[in-house]
């Protein structure tokens, strides 16, 4: 399905993999795809979120704070807990990576939420009669799905689906999807 993706949407998918790995995730989910979509400064999704006062760093913070996100070693150290020592103990009993995934690992692929987001992005492009799928369509898909990791990101940013649709439409008006 990627043959219809614009250059920035392909970059978004590759960045989703990189970001998911950096967060220690085992699989790429829809939240990582949203983060990938805003990874390039001039991507449609980045420009749309900027209009709404949000950035890639904001999205990354939301993903970090998820219960399955990386453990906050600095905060634990501040109250005297050495996360490395805890990890060593836990992994001795439960095996490597049992406490948290291994940050920097390569995720195994897309989970169902990410696949769904890509499918819905395709449908959004068809609905708008755009020939190609860009990061704006990925963001529109996040606003469309209604639940799951992508929706959680938008909720965390305090954005309604309509906010997102309006912002993407404004960017598309100045930079039509090819």
């Amino acid at each position: 399905m990627f043959e219809r993706f614009t250059h920035d949407a392909r970059t978004a998918v590759e960045q989703a993999r990189v970001e998911a790995g950096a967060l220690g995730a085992q699989r790429i989910d829809a939240g990582h795809v949203v983060l990938g979509a805003v990874s390039e400064p001039d991507a449609v999704a980045t420009l749309a979120l900027a209009r709404l006062g949000a950035s890639a760093d904001d999205v990354r913070d939301i993903l970090r704070a998820r219960p399955d996100g990386p453990l906050d070693a600095d905060a634990l150290a501040a109250i005297g807990i050495d996360l490395d020592a805890v990890r060593t103990q836990v992994e001795a009993t439960f095996g490597p990576g049992s406490l948290d995934g291994a940050p920097g690992s390569r995720p195994r692929g897309f989970d169902p939420s990410a696949k769904k987001l890509l499918e819905v992005a395709l449908r959004e492009a068809v609905r708008l009669r755009d020939r190609r799928i860009d990061t704006g369509h990925l963001l529109l898909a996040a606003a469309r799905v209604g639940e799951g990791p992508a929706q959680d990101v938008l909720t965390g940013l305090g954005l309604s689906p309509q906010d997102v649709r309006d912002a993407v439409a404004e960017v598309h008006a100045t930079r039509p999807a090819a």
């Binding site: 219960p67 453990l71 906050d72 905060a75 634990l76 501040a78 109250i79 807990i81 996360l83 805890v86 836990v90 009993t93 439960f94 049992s98 406490l99 948290d100």
Partner: peptide
């Protein structure tokens, strides 16, 4: 903010430990 952040990190850590031990 720092204190609350530490509590949150501790909750997350405790939840993961609990799940591992319950499973075992």
């Amino acid at each position: 903010a720092e204190g609350l952040r530490a509590v949150r990190a501790l909750h997350t850590l405790a939840d993961r430990l609990e799940a591992l031990h319950v499973e075992r």
